[in-house]
Design a protein around this nucleic acid. Structure first.
Lengths: 214, 214
DNA sequence: CTTGATCAACCGACCGATTGCTTGGTACGG
DNA sequence: CCGTACCAAGCAATCGGTCGGTTGATCAAG
């Protein structure tokens, strides 16, 4: 793990090293501990000591797994991006459905993912900016690709007369993102409304907003 | 300013002391500097030194105006709350309009406020949790009141048959908040769409979402 | 007009605590 | 005996906050 690809190393940071299988176990525990601590206290205020405490080892020992504190943050964000990319590919790969159904599918899946990964999503939207310049650029590029994907679906819907073409597509995209992303701020497990129902309601809300002209 | 009301002090923290008029000038400069620095670097990573530098004075001198670093954060959030309360009162005070028109009015005004106060809104949603327990409770109580206000409007619309009564009002409220609040994350001055147009589009998006069933 | 007291505003040096990170070493399973 | 996993001590830097002192404007008394 300590030798995970840096940004410079041909970008192949997620490659699985040949050996490793049991090693990954502990690596994931490290990331899980970091996720918990960062989500609770925020990246800036969380200390490496806190993460080590969560793992039950000393601070110095944690540096066996990481080079810098920022590594933990970057790897967590990389995980999120990998998962979200799967969602986008799933939506893009579904055949025989129109742009509006695709948008609804995207919203439902993305909202469900957010509700199931509150810690990482919190960290993603709270502490992304704490990355150094190069790594920040990597994450921002991924975000832009994500944005373009949704924006394209909305423009398609407008072109096909399924959505109000007078509304600026970029604004609609961001309104939809607001609906989807904000879930991580108000959702509480044990709530009265099920996650699936919430995902459906968010999809309805966003789709009605995109279609417009009631 | 150093003697601004603490949380405990009968809550009357905003009272203008008898003398003071020129003094307030510098106080506002202090808060403006803090807002700029906190918005740029985040409260946790911004140092008192940074705020003092922005003001052109030494760190020790800044403590003439504040008791703790947290004071700056709390006072900024108090300002936001005071402004937002005005918006709510304005919406509640408008006569002869239904709940849907009231909601649209709220969204437009709140979005415009967000776009005009990007720094403070960023700080509000990014660093609220850094407050101590007592002060955090104060801000959270204000937020809950804000939520109840919008939630009540939505339930009124549902009761009058103007909005889909099958959708959970709490979820709708949070979806609407997502649309409104998220603006501070994507809006950039000098963009191609005017602020007024953005406010209108957000209002349309949110209202269509609340009404549902197109 | 001069004096002297007052007070906000600011300086500059400093303190204890904590931070991210390093280093040299050890315990132990394969 | 070699590498993984961890320990224990410590370093330089930075942090929020303190403190004693200086400056300059204001203003009432003499």
């Amino acid at each position: 793990m300590a030798q995970r690809g840096s940004v410079k190393a041909k970008g192949n940071g997620r490659a699985e090293r040949g050996s490793t299988r049991r090693q990954h176990r502990r690596d994931e525990e490290v990331l899980a501990a970091a996720a918990k601590v960062f989500a609770e206290r925020g990246y800036s205020e969380a200390s490496v000591q806190d993460v080590a405490d969560e793992l039950g080892i000393l601070k110095g020992s944690l540096y066996h797994y990481i080079k810098t504190k920022e590594d933990l943050l970057f790897w967590l964000l990389e995980e999120v991006h990998r998962d979200v990319e799967e969602i986008l590919e799933g939506v893009a790969g579904t055949e025989d459905i129109g742009p509006l159904e695709r948008l609804a599918l995207y919203v439902r899946r993305q909202v469900l993912y957010n509700l199931d990964n509150l810690q990482r999503i919190s960290i993603y939207y709270h502490d992304m900016d704490r990355l150094g310049d190069e790594r920040l650029k990597v994450v921002l590029d991924q975000r832009h690709a994500h944005e373009r994907f949704v924006n394209k679906l909305i423009r398609q819907a407008q072109d096909e007369g399924l959505a109000d073409a007078d509304a600026d597509a970029r604004v609609l995209t961001n309104c939809l993102f607001g609906t989807v992303i904000w879930t991580y701020r108000w959702y509480r497990p044990n709530g009265r409304v099920s996650r699936d129902r919430i995902a459906d309601l968010c999809a309805d809300f966003a789709l009605n907003g995109v279609v417009g002209e009631s």
